[in-house]
């Protein structure tokens, strides 16, 4: 069994009447790339702040590298690298100044841990004298990651690092995380983008303060308990209306150019018959393997 890096037991936190996270328990192994997937308001940020010793939980406990998140907060602060959800660097300092500032407050230098961040840093090095506020979104993200790692943390906590970043930069960012993982750092990431789940070793699907499922992306998909069909006809909008009207439809959601459909009846021939009866043309129906988003929505509507 691999070593446990993070262990959370029955963790809850409320803000007034609103439950931010509700009785969460999970364990994350050392060296794992673990994703918390869920929309805004699911409780990801609250959870991460508790893990980073920035918030106190109401009940339950959390520990990082066997340090308690409440009692041993000073020790934890030395071993984590934290990248908050909002871009949190000094806009009026240059790339280089930001980096060396964060290096100093962690009692290290840029040179000392240069190897760790080199791959990422060389991409932004040409702009090292530019003020951070004037970088593009993708570059800000890279700089923030460098700053969070400059002290060679044991656990990297990244709160929605890819939100608002374009698809290309997002992909690059995940490639960087995969590489970092190889150096043995435990990484926990939160994201609202469901498609990023497949890039993690394990994920927790989180919604409304509850973890709906924790597993590898493959296992989560294999737990999808019904047949899923991708359906397409000549008129997307008409099909959407017709399928939502149909008494056999269980769920029908748009997915790119298809609708993903689950039906009460186990016989998929009825779909085509129904659509034909509604005078649809160019009907295309195929059974597909669900993706994480399908699984998420399935769990959500339970």
């Amino acid at each position: 069994m691999s070593e446990i890096a993070i262990s959370v037991n029955n963790l809850s936190k409320k803000y007034g009447d609103i439950t931010a996270i509700n009785n969460l328990s999970f364990e994350i192994n050392k060296g794992e790339l673990f994703g918390f997937i869920g929309p805004d308001g699911a409780g990801k940020t609250t959870l991460f702040r508790i893990l980073c010793t920035l918030l106190l939980p109401d009940t339950g406990s959390a520990s990082l590298c066997s340090f308690d998140a409440v009692k041993d907060y000073k020790k934890i602060r030395n071993i984590i690298g934290y990248m908050p959800g909002k871009f949190s660097l000094y806009q009026d300092l240059s790339v280089e100044e930001n980096l060396s500032f964060f290096a100093t407050i962690f009692g290290t230098t840029l040179e000392e841990n240069y190897d760790l961040i080199r791959d990422i840093y060389i991409q932004i090095e040409p702009f090292k004298t530019r003020q951070a506020g004037k970088l593009s979104g993708g570059m800000k993200q890279k700089l923030a990651l460098c700053c969070a790692m400059i002290h060679k943390p044991e656990v990297l906590v990244l709160d929605e690092p890819t939100t608002g970043v374009d698809a290309v930069s997002r992909k690059e960012f995940w490639e960087m995380l995969r590489k970092l993982k190889e150096s043995g750092i435990t990484i926990i990431v939160s994201t609202p983008y469901m498609d990023e789940a497949s890039l993690c070793d394990r994920v927790a699907l989180i919604q409304g303060g509850n973890i709906m499922s924790t597993d590898t992306p493959e296992n989560i998909i294999s737990q999808f308990d019904t047949a899923l069909y991708a359906v397409k006809t000549h008129s997307m909008y008409q099909m959407m209306l017709d399928l939502k009207d149909w008494n056999q439809t269980e769920t029908a959601y748009l997915f790119g150019q298809y609708m993903h459909l689950t039906i009460k009846d186990k016989d998929n021939n009825t779909i085509e018959a129904y659509l034909k009866s509604k005078s649809h043309k160019d009907i295309e129906i195929k059974q597909i393997t669900p993706n994480i988003e399908d699984a998420f929505m399935r769990l959500m509507s339970k």
Binding site: L54, I80, Q91, F102, I105
Partner: peptide, 13 residues
């Protein structure tokens, strides 16, 4: 406001 306080607090400072 910037959110940098969060990082400072989460650091050993």
């Amino acid at each position: 406001e910037l959110g940098t306080m969060e990082i400072l607090l989460a650091s050993p400072l």
